[in-house]
């Protein structure tokens, strides 16, 4: 009998996508005094935790947030760091609307390209390309710190996704968004893999998070279904605990989804010492 896969993450993704979209639309309506009264008026910048990252230097040096950024961004950053320490970059895998949209478009790509999907980039090139997001992170933090302005919004596809109907959006950001969405037809989560500075930062938590994706070697049948299911192309079957910085805690590799053996790939915390060399 075919195993029923859990859809719970998809529901959460839809919920957060809808929530951010509604807030973004209401913010636009507020500009013409037509906001829906029972929905809070919040700018996209106010609910973006990455704004908290880029304003930290300004806060430390001149004691103020950069333009358009408020305390809410720093609070959301703090909350997402707590979540990352516990569960890894769950914000990327469960909450980020841009990640969700890439994933949903990727489902079309999977239907078109079948097994070739998400395997277009040669492994060697892919390995080096994944360092780009760290360069993006360093660049964004540097230029924002130097200028005191939100430079990244001019290329930010997340911002473009929820402001493309307003005058605030820049053409370059829309272009990056289009490239990201078209790229999602060939590669799963291309923005997350290669360019997202926030993902780069959150991904570091995979090295020390409390709850990790773990594989139970004695029950594993080495079918590598977990490897093929991973949207970030991590070889889960090669170790006992996933410590790869690209893991987004999406559960796709687990026994709830791809793994055919119960309780073999799980998200779990263990106090047993992991033997050196066991990480993936």
């Amino acid at each position: 009998m075919k195993k029923r896969k859990s859809k719970v993450r998809t529901y959460i993704q839809i919920l957060f996508f809808a929530l951010i979209a509604i807030l973004a639309v209401n913010n636009t309506l507020a500009e013409s005094d037509a906001a829906i009264a029972w929905i809070p008026v919040l700018s996209l910048h106010a609910i973006c935790p990455f704004g908290g990252v880029v304003t930290l230097y300004n806060l430390a040096t001149v004691g103020d947030y950069i333009q358009k950024i408020h305390a809410s961004s720093v609070i959301l950053l703090a909350i997402s760091i707590v979540m990352a320490i516990l569960f890894g970059p769950v914000l990327c895998g469960w909450i980020c609307p841009l990640g969700s949209l890439q994933e949903w478009i990727g489902k079309i790509g999977k239907r078109i390209f079948k097994k070739k999907y998400n395997a277009f980039v040669p492994k060697k090139a892919d390995r080096y390309l994944r360092y780009i997001r760290y360069l993006v992170l360093i660049w964004v933090v540097y230029v924002t710190a130097k200028s005191g302005t939100l430079v990244f919004k001019n290329v930010d596809p997340y911002n473009a996704l929820f402001t493309f109907w307003s005058e605030e959006v820049s053409y370059s950001a829309v272009l990056v968004l289009i490239l990201t969405l078209v790229g999602s037809l060939f590669i799963e989560r291309p923005w997350c893999k290669y360019a997202c500075p926030y993902g780069a930062l959150m991904g570091i938590s995979n090295k020390f998070r409390m709850f990790k994706i773990r594989r139970n070697e004695p029950t594993c049948i080495h079918c590598t279904k977990c490897d093929r299911a991973c949207p970030m192309n991590i070889e889960v079957s090669k170790g006992q605990a996933v410590k790869n910085a690209q893991c987004i805690s999406c559960y796709e590799c687990t026994s709830e989804q791809a793994c055919p053996i119960p309780d073999t790939v799980t998200l779990s915390a263990t106090f047993k010492k992991v033997v050196a060399g066991d990480k993936v």
Binding site: S6, V82, V90, I95, F211, Y251, E256, A269
Partner: peptide, 17 residues
């Protein structure tokens, strides 16, 4: 200790909100 996706579905909103 294991966390299922069902557990995560309420843990994340609780922490966030």
């Amino acid at each position: 200790m294991k966390l299922t996706s069902r557990t995560m579905a309420w843990v994340l909103p609780v922490i966030l909100f």
